[in-house]
Write a protein that binds this DNA or RNA. Structure first.
Length: 581
DNA sequence: GCCGTTTTCGGCCCGACTGTTTTCAGTCG
């Protein structure tokens, strides 16, 4: 770990570790939650926590969930890489105990019991104890618990939490929803949870059903194709694990509770807790069955009804993260979020001229079929060799083919573009004359991901400052679950983008979604315009725009913030061809 | 440990399911 100079992620990780160790120590649950909330606040900050700390004594304290004590601990982490309480907790926590918490079904109480009574020191040791039949001898444990522990370990569930890309989860969710909708007597089926909130990854799926056929629904669900194991099965709730490893929870709700259930199971947990606090202050109680005054149900059929009961307008699910949406709702300043229908075209895609799998005309026809008004074809520049990047002559030849194609296309206009590599020193990978001849210039980083932040930021800012540049593509270069983004001062990048009229991309590839929600929101707040680009490498991928829109919505992005929500004539005025520097 | 239209103490969201238990604790979401 780098130290000093802890990042937000470092601070968050240490707070979460402290929370876990406090839990094992049997501490006050609310104190534990305070550390978890503090971790979340720091993690979701749109600037380095070190910069907040540098603003003075009170600045950290002003962050939500950060009080005097946690502020001091943040300062300690920034200065030393840790804090005394954590060091003490690490010392007093028996080695191997935290590892046991990773086994699903084991919490602090039972983990502690296994440790103390059976001398279990690791997940492997737990497996041995369970196989030897020793686990069932403990009070509160039995043969079934022992088998469940073995199954959980065997399934690799303890190897670490694995979240699935939302786009992939959708391919499991959609057939299940179809199946349940076909059950006679079912009225409504909705996917709730983080899937509905549009998070880039989901840990599981929550499916809500209402209708008369309760037993039939549970039966259809637990016997659906793809179900590998039934984890739980009750009258109103069931849970299964699919062959893909994805867990799916089902809840059956009465119609008069459907809105309350949908709202409750959509979350986020932090959002729900905050709204429940409001309800409590008004003498109301919210649960998944409705809003109650005493025992009287006062709302529950729809989400609008539930929120109205606590004096709030309906809040789009993508905003329900307790990141200011509740205050915004109360004050009537919720954003009017961009929708897929608002987009008039797409500003990044690839063809067989570089690493795409469909040719120019196929891509154009597919975009036309989607109703796009324009499509920028942005094949790679030469230095990205693995992609078969084109040279200057290649782009000139492609331009001539695009002009011919446009002459025979109907409503769609193909824009001649390029995704130009940003070289190590911030220069661009095509000469100025070639760049000037293009309609759209996207610039991106495809190498040298590991430069230190200052150098990386200089590189990107220099590239943005080139007068031919229109869009910074996938600005951080992160690949979800595989590669962290480059170290970049997004504030400086946003400033440069604003100064030079460059738009920042929300790349819609399901494993990129880059900028992410928090960065997109920060960019928009700094007055920068975004574009949502599919970065399609095949005709079918032009549909990826939906994932980019969802990410943008999570970042509070409105139609007016998005370049490709403009009709072509107005978009052209933002591009380097008509822009004056 | 945080927080305040219940304001510096005393709360902090709430219920389902499981397994093991004769009435509930632990875990999860």
């Amino acid at each position: 770990m780098r130290r000093p100079g802890a990042t937000n992620a470092d601070v968050a990780r240490l707070f979460l570790e402290a929370a876990e160790l406090l839990e094992l120590a049997g501490e006050n649950p609310f104190r534990i939650r305070a550390y978890q909330q503090g971790a979340r606040t720091v993690e979701e900050l749109d600037e380095p926590v070190a910069r907040v700390a540098a603003r003075g004594a009170k600045a950290l304290d002003a962050l939500p969930g950060i009080g005097e004590d946690l502020a001091e601990k943040i300062r300690q982490v920034l200065a030393t890489g840790s804090f005394p309480l954590l060091a003490r907790l690490r010392k007093q926590t028996p080695k191997g105990l935290p590892e046991l918490l990773k086994v699903p079904g084991l919490g602090p109480k039972r983990a502690r019991l296994l440790y103390d009574e059976l001398g279990v020191r690791s997940v492997a040791g737990l497996a041995r104890a369970a196989k030897a039949g020793r686990v069932r001898t403990l009070p509160g444990f039995g043969a079934k618990t022992e088998a469940a522990i073995l199954a959980a370990i065997g399934g690799g569930a303890a190897a670490g939490e694995k979240r699935m890309l939302r786009a992939r989860a959708a391919s499991y969710a959609e057939p299940l929803v179809e199946l349940l909708r076909a059950v006679p007597g079912v009225d409504r089926v909705e996917v709730a949870g983080s899937f509905r909130r549009g998070r880039e990854t989901v840990g599981d799926l929550d499916i809500l059903v209402t209708g008369r056929a309760r037993a039939a629904v549970v039966e259809a669900f637990t016997s659906a194709p793809g179900v590998a194991r039934v984890l739980a099965r009750g009258a109103t709730r069931a849970a299964v694990r699919l062959g893909s490893g994805l867990q799916v929870d089902l809840r059956v709700l009465a119609p008069e509770s459907f809105g309350a259930g949908l709202y409750y199971f959509t979350g986020s947990k932090a959002h729900n807790v905050a709204v429940r606090g409001i309800a409590r202050a008004a003498g109301l109680k919210i649960n998944e069955y409705g809003v109650f005054r005493g025992k009287t149900l006062v709302a529950g059929r729809t989400e609008e009804e539930v929120l109205a009961a606590v004096g709030l307008p309906w809040i789009p699910p993508e905003l329900r993260e307790d990141r200011g949406e509740i205050a915004a709702a109360r004050e009537g300043r919720l954003p009017d979020l961009v929708t897929l229908r608002d987009l008039r075209g797409d500003l990044q895609c690839h063809t067989t001229d570089s690493d795409g799998r469909d040719d120019l005309e196929a891509m154009a026809r597919a975009a036309e079929a989607l109703g796009h008004q324009y499509l920028a074809v942005t094949d790679h520049s030469p230095s990205v060799r693995v992609t078969g990047g084109m040279d200057a002559a290649g782009f000139r030849a492609q331009r001539r083919r695009i002009d011919k194609l446009n002459a025979k296309l109907g409503k769609l206009t193909v824009l001649a573009g390029a995704e130009v590599d940003i070289l190590a020193d911030g220069r661009l990978d095509l000469d100025d004359a070639t760049l000037a001849g293009l309609d759209v210039v996207v610039i991106s980083i495809h190498s040298r991901f590991n430069l230190p932040e200052a150098e990386q930021t200089r590189r990107v800012v220099r590239a943005i400052s080139h007068p031919a540049v229109d869009i910074l593509g996938h600005p951080t270069g992160r690949i979800i679950g595989r590669r962290a983004g480059i170290a970049l001062d997004l504030d400086a990048v946003a400033r440069a983008a604003g100064d030079h009229g460059v738009m920042l991309e929300v790349n819609a590839q399901p494993e990129r979604l880059d900028l992410d929600d928090i960065a997109a929101r920060a960019a928009v707040e700094r007055g920068v315009r975004l574009v949502i680009g599919s970065d399609a490498h095949a005709a079918a991928e032009l549909g990826f725009l939906r994932w980019g829109v969802d990410q943008a919505r999570r970042g509070w992005v409105e139609k007016q913030d998005v370049g490709n929500a403009l009709p072509l004539a107005r978009l052209r005025k933002l591009l380097h061809g008509s822009r004056k520097h």
